[in-house]
């Protein structure tokens, strides 16, 4: 059965993934909107940057974050200056890393959803007295609901499944940074196979259920390039 340490890891994972998903939607929505609509030449650059976590080994991302968040890194200096201490090996650091790591999984489905809205639909809203902000909330968001569902679920599940980045910048601190994937690794290292089975089974069941619901509910489920 699951031990207290296992339950703690599950709870921590849930907290990290929820908070990261929330932040991802907050950042990802305007970013995806900008990418979907801008004629700016910077679009290709930003798109490539956002998509990097799709192809980079998580350890590479984790390594750079570790350097940046460390005492002599740019982010580390900033957080020191703000009296926040160092972010590496903390819960906050883990959430920030998760946001970067899962960014393309949220931005891409949103971008696809926004792209599919015809310019004329927005123009029609403008001719019906809707300001750009009202158009966004009353036309764009409701039409993009399936895109938001996909983005949230992919962002959440992908954060739950992260391992390499956590090991690099979060380590293995109980209640702070020890998420389920790390806990499974610990069990296997200690040859506690039954424990590992329980946790791994939980993750497998969770991931499958969520994806099963996603593919059953949506008329146009996410494509492979969005899933990775």
């Amino acid at each position: 059965m699951l031990t207290t340490a296992d339950l703690d890891a599950l709870w921590l994972t849930f907290k990290v993934a929820s908070l990261a998903t929330f932040l991802l939607l907050l950042i990802g929505t305007p970013l995806a909107w900008w990418l979907a609509r801008t004629p700016s030449p910077a679009k290709g650059f930003i798109n490539a940057l956002v998509s990097l976590p799709l192809v980079l080994p998580p350890t590479v991302l984790g390594f750079y974050l570790l350097i940046l968040m460390g005492p002599s890194g740019a982010i580390g200096q900033l957080t020191h200056f703000l009296n926040l201490g160092t972010l590496s090996f903390t819960f906050a650091g883990l959430v920030i890393a998760s946001v970067l790591y899962s960014l393309p999984f949220v931005v891409q489905p949103l971008q696809t959803a926004f792209n599919s809205i015809a310019e004329q639909t927005l123009e029609a809203a403008a001719t019906l007295r809707a300001s750009p902000i009202s158009t966004f909330f009353n036309v764009v968001l409701p039409i993009s609901r399936p895109g938001f569902l996909t983005a949230s679920i992919l962002g959440f599940t992908h954060t739950v499944g992260e391992f390499g980045v956590v090991l690099m910048i979060g380590g293995n601190i109980p209640d702070k940074t020890r998420v389920v994937s790390v806990q499974i690794y610990n069990h296997v290292e200690a040859l506690e196979y039954p424990q590992a089975h329980w946790l791994a089974g939980c993750l497998l069941a969770f991931s499958f259920t969520v994806l099963f619901i996603l593919y059953s509910v949506l008329k146009t489920p996410p494509q492979v390039q969005q899933l990775k």
């Binding site: 015809a118 029609a124 001719t127 007295r129």
Partner: peptide, 25 residues
């Protein structure tokens, strides 16, 4: 008032919802 070549109705709203859209704005 503007009528486009395509009707450009909002797909998430009923006909009534579409008719009320401008007034709600």
């Amino acid at each position: 008032g503007y009528v486009f070549q395509e009707a450009n109705l909002f797909p998430h709203l009923t006909v009534l919802g579409n008719l009320q859209f401008g007034l709600k704005q």
